[in-house]
Computed example of a mutant assay.
Amino acid sequence: MAGAFALRLAPRLAAVPPGRGKGGGGASRGAGSRALVTKKPNKEHHLWIRKETAGSGKKALRLIDTVSKLPNEKEAIYGALDKWSAFEPEFPIIAAAKALGMLKRRRKWLRIIQVTKWLMTKGQVLTWTTYDTLLLALFMDGRVDEAESIWTTVIQTHTRSVPKRLFSRMILMYDIHHHPDKVLEIYADMEELGVRPDEDTARRIGKAFVAFGQEEKEKYVLDRYLKKWKYIHFNGERVRVRRDGPLA
């Protein structure tokens, strides 16, 4: 019986880790000592390296100061802008984008057109924001034909990736310049590409249909794209009501 107990106990004794049993290696350590573990420092790996943006604001201001002092001549503008970017190891994309934003806030429409067209010759900073800013500048400067030419290039090149705001920009321009036929052409492109107009754009589209005596199509557009609910001030409070309800 004692032999059978010893056989069952032997595997358990063999499983005791070193230094845990009596007289084990752990007994030689101090009572409060701990083993020192050296950990390797973590190395961070970045898939994307952020471009250096330091000084881009000063570069943008230098661009604005440069073009502001020049006459409205293409050769003079382009030559100065070439010198502005000549000594940069990489094209100053961030500075150029900031400069366009500053010119937009200052409402310098002609300078925006000049700088943007120069960027287009370089193939740089051709973002949707840049195109939108250029279309706005052409519209504000009264150059509808040029804006239409830029729009045609954009819609033919990118087609299904053109954002809603560019469609809205063109419809706004054509509406203000009294071209309802052009408004409806843009709307037809939006319908084909599945772009849903915002409420202001939908009203301008409806207005274009009215100009051609098609009030039923105006009602269709407004019913389809205007929200069913809107907020009004009633008895000193802001309340939500149905657009076609009695309070509307």
Rank of each mutant, 00 (worst) to 15 (best):
I113S: 03
K104D: 13
R50V: 12
L136N: 08
E191H: 07
R105L: 09
P41A: 03
R12P: 06
K74D: 12
R34K: 04
D141P: 01
A15E: 09
T159C: 10
I205L: 07
I171L: 07
P71K: 03
T129D: 15
I176G: 05
I232P: 09
D175P: 02
R160P: 14
E148T: 05
R62L: 14
S85L: 09
V144D: 14
D141K: 00
K182D: 15
Y131N: 05
L61F: 13
T127Q: 03
K83A: 09
W128F: 14
T121E: 10
R106G: 09
L119E: 14
A202H: 07
L138D: 10
A14L: 13
K58Y: 12
D223Y: 07
R203W: 15
A54F: 09
R203K: 08
A31R: 07
V183D: 06
G23N: 08
F91T: 01
V37L: 07
P17V: 03
R20F: 11
L222S: 01
G206A: 07
P197I: 03
E75A: 12
H178I: 10
E218N: 08
V16T: 02
N72V: 12
V221S: 00
E148Y: 04
A97K: 07
E44M: 12
I232Y: 06
E218V: 04
P11V: 00
F209E: 10
R143S: 06
V195R: 00
L13M: 10
N235T: 00
H158Q: 11
Y78L: 04
T121R: 00
M190F: 12
R8W: 13
W109H: 01
M140D: 04
A80P: 01
R204M: 12
S28F: 14
V183T: 02
N72H: 10
P89D: 09
E191P: 05
R196G: 08
Q156K: 04
G30K: 03
R243W: 15
G26I: 04
R238H: 08
T129A: 13
R50Y: 13
V241H: 01
V210Y: 05
E192P: 05
S68M: 05
L70W: 10
E237I: 05
A76Y: 05
L134C: 03
A188M: 15
R12I: 15
E199Q: 07
K59G: 12
V67F: 06
